[in-house]
C-alpha cells in the first residue's frame, strides 16, 4: 500500500510492469490462488492422473510399466470376480445409503424435538462416528463371529434359535451383515448434519403452516423436506461417496470373502495391486470406480438441488 502511494506521487513516470501487475485485480487473484492451486495439483490432480495412467500400463509394484492401452480393462471385462465386485459395490452403496438416509433423517427429526437430556443424546449419537473404523470393525467381527457371536449366543439362550448364525459365511447373510455394520457407522454423520439443517428452518414457517391447518405430515412434506433438501443433497453425496469407497470395514470383517461375496471394488483393487503386485490392474479397478462416483455426484447436484423440487413442486 505504501508503494502504491509512492508511485501516485510521481505521476509522470509510467508504472513499471511489476507495479502494474501488483495493481491488476486478475493478477493478484491468480497469485493468491496459486498456493491452493499448487496444493490441489500436487496432492489431488497428480495422484489421480497417475492412477489413470497406471491403469493403462502393466506396472507392477516398484516396476514402471509399459503402456498397454486398454488391456487391463479388457481383462477386467471378462473377469467374473471384477463384475461380482461391481455388483457388490452397487448393492452395498445403494442399500446402505438408503438405510442411512431413512434412519438418519428419522433420528434427526426425533432429536429436533424437545426431549429431556437433549444435549446428552445428541452427543451420544455421534459415538459410532467417533470410534475409528478399524476398532468398530473389530467389534463387529466379534459380534458376527461364527463361534463366539454375542447375537447368536443371546438368541440361543433365549431359545429363539438352536444353532449359531453364520453371519459372515453365507453370501447374502455376509452382505447383509457388512451393510448393517456400515449403516451403524454412517448414521451419525447423516443424523447430525440433517439436525443442523433442521435447526436452520425458521419456526415461523411451521407456525404459519399450522395456522393454515396443515397436518404434521403436510408440514413435514411441504415445509421441512423442501427446506432441508439442499443439505440432504450435500450430506447424501458425501455419504454415498464414503460408502462407495469403503475399505476398512470389509477388510477387517471378511477380506472380501466368503468367495468374494463382499468384495468391493476398493478391496479388490487393493488385493490385486498391493499383495498381488499387479499395480496396473489395481489402478484400472480404481479408475473404473470413477464413472460411478461422477454419476452419483452429478445426480445429487443436478437432481436433488433442483429449485422446483426444493420449492415443493414436481416436474
Amino acid at each position: 500500500m505504501t508503494d502504491h502511494a509512492g508511485t501516485a506521487g510521481r505521476a509522470p513516470a509510467p508504472p513499471s510492469f511489476l507495479s502494474r501487475l501488483g495493481q491488476s485485480r486478475n493478477a493478484l487473484g491468480l497469485a493468491f490462488m496459486l498456493p491452493a492451486g499448487v496444493f490441489l495439483i500436487c496432492f489431488l490432480a497428480y495422484p489421480l492422473g497417475l492412477g489413470v495412467w497406471l491403469g493403462f500400463t502393466d506396472a507392477r509394484i516398484g516396476r514402471t510399466g509399459q503402456f498397454i492401452g486398454l488391456e487391463n480393462y479388457q481383462f477386467l471385462w471378462i473377469d467374473a470376480v471384477f463384475w461380482l465386485s461391481v455388483f457388490n459395490t452397487l448393492l452395498y452403496t445403494i442399500t446402505a445409503s438408503i438405510l442411512k438416509f431413512g434412519l438418519g433423517l428419522w433420528l434427526a427429526l426425533i432429536l429436533n424435538q424437545h426431549l429431556p437430556f437433549k444435549a446428552f443424546f445428541r452427543a451420544i449419537v455421534l459415538l459410532p462416528w467417533v470410534v475409528p473404523t478399524v476398532l468398530s470393525g473389530i467389534a463387529f467381527w466379534w459380534i458376527y463371529d461364527s463361534q463366539f457371536s454375542i447375537v447368536s449366543w443371546s438368541l440361543i439362550k433365549l431359545g429363539v434359535i438352536d444353532h449359531y448364525i453364520n453371519f459372515l459365511g453365507e453370501a447374502n447373510m455376509a452382505r447383509a451383515s457388512v451393510i448393517a455394520a456400515n449403516v451403524w457407522r454412517g448414521i451419525p454423520f447423516v443424523a447430525i448434519s440433517l439436525l443442523a439443517g433442521l435447526q436452520t428452518i425458521s419456526p415461523s414457517l411451521h407456525e404459519a403452516a399450522t395456522l393454515d391447518g396443515a397436518t404434521p405430515w403436510q408440514r413435514f412434506r411441504y415445509v421441512t423436506l423442501p427446506m432441508l433438501s439442499p443439505i440432504i443433497s450435500v450430506v447424501m453425496t458425501f455419504s454415498v461417496l464414503f460408502t462407495f469407497t469403503d475399505f476398512q470395514l470389509i477388510y477387517v470383517l471378511t477380506k472380501g470373502g466368503p468367495v468374494n461375496a463382499t468384495h468391493l471394488m476398493a478391496t479388490l483393487s487393493f488385493q490385486r495391486a498391493i499383495p498381488g503386485g499387479q499395480l496396473g490392474e489395481g489402478a484400472a479397478i480404481a479408475v473404473a470406480m470413477i464413472p460411478f462416483l461422477l454419476a452419483a455426484i452429478l445426480f445429487s447436484f443436478f437432481g436433488l438441488q433442483r429449485r422446483k423440487w426444493q420449492q415443493g413442486g414436481s416436474d
Binding site: 463371529d145 461364527s146 463366539f148 444353532h163 453364520n166 459365511g169 453365507e170 471378511t254 466368503p258
Partner: peptide, 21 residues
C-alpha cells in the same frame, strides 16, 4: 467341520481351538 469355516480368517481357527470349539 464346525459350521462357519467359510468366513474364517487366519485367527479364527486359533480362537475356536483354544475355546474348545
Amino acid at each position: 467341520f464346525i459350521p462357519g469355516t467359510e468366513s474364517w480368517l487366519d485367527i479364527n481357527n486359533n480362537r475356536a481351538f483354544l475355546a474348545n470349539q
